[in-house]
Design a protein around this nucleic acid. Structure first.
Length: 469
RNA sequence: GGCGGGUUGGCGGAGAGGUUACGCACCGGAUUGCAAAUCCGUGAAGACCGGUUCGAUUCCGGUACCCGCCUCCA
């Protein structure tokens, strides 16, 4: 068994991972707010956790890991979208419009993450299904003196939790000095945050001891993780931008509600995604979703490869060049493992790389080594450990029947030209292949071909029209 | 203002206090009608300034620059 080591944001150190219960390793990942398509940055924590889950299952057994990722379906952006649809003339009720929107978005999310080869979590709780637990937890926090009611709101009293700020390395006083906090007059302390807030009649709401309202954002993860994983579990994660305030607030709520439990042992945060060296944002015009890339013909497997090639704790830069290089590598590997059965286990060096704080880039180097030694069975088994070269994943790298027919005809034409010593024509076909993104290797057994990155069916068809037989 | 991350060879990107990362590109050779692919081989690094050390790109301190968070955000 390989000792897994993970960098724990809470302690800022790389630590040996020791599960609370090796027969049931429990993880929670903060999932998406379901109001729109997942953008590329949303995919990063999903892939980090996907890799982690695969590793944990490899070490502790397939049934010994419980992976929870929530859907946030209570949110003002969702409400705004539903209100917009109703204003646009929809006859449906607000609740129905919200349900419609969230269902649609969850379907998109599943399709997009599936395309990246990400395993579905064991549980995907929706916030709306746990409002009762959130109300109960809120009431409990009031009873324990950690929260108070004010003007229909329930607020968490940060001064009642001395460790507040420990995760993100801030003190309440420092943050107030920074003073960019919404100052609501009914707050005892500017850093106090909302557990429950009132809903007007045109917003979704649930009955509660504090009137009709809806939960604040942070309480859902505290309630759902407790319900599905218990008050003490192994790993909790998300993007580094969630470290504060979301995760800080989760810790405050959960630790105060369950003082002896300890909440999450390990906090795992991935760094942010950039695009061509800049923050991805709508204003810079470099904002795109996973679906945008897939629709543009970038295979999910390529996106996954690029994502894995940068360590999760470093900023990851998405560039067109990386996508092309990844595509070329994957095409080569697909060719190498075609028709091969995977080895019984992944390469030990690959597991060691992953166990060392999910060093996926190091793991990919191991794959290059296996490929270089033409260990196709080992390459396949190891790549699958990373969620690459999975069955059915490489269809994008295969030529369809039409292209294959054209290529075969052109190869025959080239052979005929060479035998006739018409090297001008032979070279024209050769250059045409290169321009169309078809790689031809002349071996002792005759030509072998494969599609390269940037394969262009239209150019191939032109070439076939000009030189085909 | 507070907090955090980064800076490695032409590009991407890891690990390790002293021994080749790796991939792509480049260069030389083999091979080829010419190429491609392949094989063999050569180069090439760790922002800057100090410190610790026999020895640091790797540890410590400082400086510069880049990025992010502190407000919805993965």
């Amino acid at each position: 068994m390989t000792q897994i080591r993970l960098t724990n944001t809470r302690t800022r150190r790389k630590e040996d991972f020791v599960p609370i219960d090796p027969a049931n390793v429990r993880l929670y990942l903060c999932g998406p707010t379901v109001y729109d398509r997942a953008h590329l940055g949303n995919a990063r924590p999903v892939l980090v956790f996907d890799l982690l889950v695969r590793l944990l299952r490899h070490e502790y057994g397939d049934r010994a890991v419980t992976y929870v990722r929530n859907f946030t379906d209570v949110d003002d952006k969702i409400n705004a979208e539903a209100q917009r649809r109703r204003a646009a003339g929809s006859d449906l009720s607000l609740e129905a419009l919200i349900a419609e929107r969230t269902e649609e978005t969850i379907g998109w999310y599943h399709a997009d993450m599936d395309a990246l080869g990400a395993l579905r979590p064991d549980h995907e709780p929706r916030a709306t299904a746990y409002v009762g637990q959130m109300v109960a937890m809120t009431a409990d926090l009031i009873a324990k003196g950690h929260a108070y009611e004010a003007e229909g709101h329930v607020l968490f009293d940060v001064r009642s939790f001395p460790d507040y700020g420990q995760l993100s390395g801030r003190s309440v006083d420092d943050m107030i000095a920074g003073a960019r906090v919404e100052v609501a007059p009914f707050k005892r302390d500017p850093m106090d945050f909302v557990l429950w807030k009132p809903s007007s009649d045109d917003l979704p709401g649930w009955d509660s001891p504090w009137g009709r309202g809806r939960p604040g954002w942070h309480i859902e993860c505290s309630a759902m993780s407790a319900a599905l994983l218990g008050p003490h579990f192994d790993i909790h994660g998300g993007g580094i931008d969630l470290q504060f305030p979301h995760h800080e607030n989760e810790i405050a709520q959960s630790c105060c509600a369950h003082p002896q439990a300890g909440f999450a042992n390990v906090w795992l945060h991935n760094e942010m995604l950039q695009v061509e060296g800049k923050k991805m944002s709508k204003s810079l015009g470099n904002f795109f979703t996973v679906r945008d890339l897939l629709d543009r013909g970038v295979p999910g497997e390529v996106i996954r490869f690029v994502m894995l090639s940068t360590h999760y704790r470093k900023p990851m830069d998405w560039t067109e060049t990386k996508a092309q290089e990844a595509e070329a590598v994957l095409r080569r590997w697909h060719g190498l493992v075609a028709g091969i059965e995977p080895a019984t286990s992944p390469a030990p060096a690959l597991i060691e790389a992953l166990a060392d704080d999910l060093n996926a880039a190091g793991a990919i180097a191991v794959l290059h080594d296996l490929a270089g030694r033409e260990d196709a069975a080992g390459l396949l088994a190891s790549a699958r450990m990373l969620g690459l070269l999975l069955p059915g994943m490489g269809e994008w790298a295969q030529a369809d029947g039409e292209a294959a027919g054209q290529i075969e005809a052109l190869l025959a034409a080239r052979l005929a030209a060479r035998q006739a010593r018409d090297f001008g024509r032979a070279d024209a076909i050769r250059d045409g292949f290169a321009a169309a993104g078809v790689e031809v290797k002349d071996t002792a057994q005759g030509p072998e071909w494969s599609l390269a990155a940037g394969f262009n069916p239209a150019r191939l068809a032109d070439l076939a029209r000009t030189h085909g037989t």
